[in-house]
Design a protein around this nucleic acid. Structure first.
Lengths: 346, 346
DNA sequence: TAGTAGCACTCTCTTTCAATGAGTGCCAAG
DNA sequence: CTTGGCACTCATTGAAAGAGAGTGCTACTA
């Protein structure tokens, strides 16, 4: 299927680029006037008819120009598109924006999401680091009231997570402090994933059953982890940008759009896909996501990492008609930058 | 201005109610057919002309029916409207929804916001409790890395707040633990506002300058408070409901609408107004808010409290055309319910 | 044989115009 | 003061006509 003649590729590229810019169907005359193709509109028409037969282009109606199909876009992105490099100026702007918020992880991620949306004029998304992969800095137990204990996990990257547990027994604060000191010693600097494993092992180990303090502390942590691991959060910023796209000037579509965003879990699952695969920017077009809600949206995403560990993902969500050649490098650069920021000194 | 004849009031009421239901301008014939008014449409027309002169009604164009103005709505709400009582059934539903999430404050507030939006088919908002008024349960210092210290505040209501401080000196975790134990003893059960006052006093007190531990701990807390007090958060849920209102079927207005929600600080300031005044449900109509962004939205809000202390506010945001007679009692009931849930056992 | 010019044809979009109908204001009579 | 009647206004709807953009096809050309 990669067997497209040189000219056909040029025509497809022209249609895609023009359509991305204008949002309108592109006619043969418009293309023949772009200098690079030195052929008449009639010739272009023939090529276009071929491309349509192959399913790469389509006509909204008989007497309209052509619009790239999803398949056409896919081909363009995979085989034709040349990503523009970001200008040094732009890189500097992005770096600048993320420089001063380094302190607090939550703020940093939210800001990253804003930067993505701002630079691409679409919605920016950032998925929190997977907790399993982050390292424990500190664990703390606080007695809120009888039978209610708050467990606070702080990771090295500065992420704070808290869970309120319902506990049968009423444990006083002094004892909870002991748990804390105890566990901090053992688990410090391990990833939460490792800790989870370890807890399971230790709980199986019969001899630990006799060390009441240790055994209770383990049980409590285990329970806390249970609720913690589910909560994978996502920042979405710049949804407003999407409204400005002419494809959403129809209220019904707009409603659809916001419905897609309302339930973040779907998008989270999609971004998780980016995570499981090797690193690098990934583009998911419309129906490729197999999610009804996203059928006319596409996602450009990339994981960010610390060292070799993939932590989370970030990206841009927008209509199918986006300037991929610009957004791909923006996402790529931002992911690399965030990865660098995730390297922990000390 | 309260001098409206009985009939004029009935006509105004009819126009408001009909317009709230249909969204369309209301004509004289429609009203005369509602049984309660036993007069002809011509008579109604005369009354309507009077009401229009008073600025309570207006015509979109000469040959259309009448629509209540903001002033008209205000009069209706203040002087004519009789709030329907909530049915026991509905009360039970609301209670049910908020019953099981009691544990975690953040979840409770978010859920409350969802309940409000769901029951009123508009957007629901809940403002976090003002930190100054909540009582400290626990304070904790964690060394993240050299010169970075995380301060965690837990309030009795189960609210967790954390701030990352940049600290000149590199203090080790053992010393930080001392600070924590020290301060927990002193400040436990005081409100954050009181604590703030106290810190200022103590720092002035010369003799404390010699107690290095105490003085450093105070300084750190003071700095933590500085950043904490600004962050007043707001939950907005059910924005999607608003799209369904016919007044927002126009894309431009919709854009306006979401712009209003993008910057939460404006809405927070508005809800703060509810807080400063005496308790009870308050309705702010369109331009009354003096915020450009909200000129065609109205807010129905009420504070919630613990005992006699106003903690935060909650409410419903929607178009001017809302069923106030139903929403007002919903907000009222929910606020009372949340207040009850905020009473702390123990 | 590939490319091109020309032309008839198709379909959307915009404009125009008239008809419809809901609703008003006002007047004269009850 | 209320009411029926009537002329008038203005948004809305639908049909008709015209413009414009673009295509597919055919016949011609290098």
């Amino acid at each position: 299927m990669n067997q497209l003649s040189e000219r056909a590729q040029q025509v497809l590229e022209a249609v895609v680029i023009d359509h991305i810019r204008s949002g309108e169907p592109v006619g043969s005359r418009t293309i023949s006037k772009r200098h690079r193709l030195q052929v008449s509109s009639a010739t272009i028409r023939n090529v276009m008819a071929d491309l349509e037969e192959m399913g790469l282009l389509q006509q909204p109606h008989t007497s309209a120009g052509r619009v790239p199909t999803e398949k056409g876009l896919r081909f363009y992105i995979d085989s034709i598109m040349k990503s523009k490099d970001l200008e040094a100026q732009e890189k500097r702007l992005i770096q600048q924006a993320l420089k001063d918020v380094h302190r607090d992880l939550a703020t940093l991620l939210q800001k990253t999401s804003k930067v993505l949306s701002g630079f691409c004029k679409q919605a920016g998304v950032v998925l929190w680091p997977k907790l399993t992969l982050t390292r424990l800095k500190h664990i703390e137990f606080v007695r809120l009231r009888a039978h209610q204990i708050m467990v606070i996990l702080i990771t090295k990257s500065g992420l704070v997570n808290h869970v309120v547990l319902h506990w049968e027994e009423d444990v006083d604060q002094d004892e909870l402090d002991k748990y804390g000191r105890y566990l901090n010693d053992i688990f410090k600097d391990m990833t939460l994933g490792e800790i989870k494993e370890r807890i399971i092992q230790e709980m199986k180990n019969e001899k630990n059953l006799f060390d009441e303090l240790y055994s209770k502390a383990l049980k409590m942590t285990d329970q806390a982890f249970e609720s913690t691991f589910e909560s994978s959060e996502l920042y979405i910023e710049g949804q407003l940008n999407l409204i400005n796209n002419p494809e959403f000037s129809d209220v019904d579509r707009l409603r659809h759009l916001f419905q897609a965003f309302e339930d973040k879990s779907k998008i989270i699952r999609l971004l998780d896909l980016t995570l499981s695969k090797a690193s690098g920017v990934k583009v998911i077009l419309g129906t490729e996501s197999s999610l009804d809600e996203l059928y006319e949206l596409s996602i450009i995403s990339s994981p960010y990492k610390r060292g070799d560990t993939l932590l989370g993902a970030l990206g841009v969500i927008g209509p199918l008609r986006m300037d991929y050649s610009r957004i791909v490098p923006v996402v790529e650069f931002t992911a690399a930058l965030l990865s660098r920021l995730m390297e922990e000194p000390e």
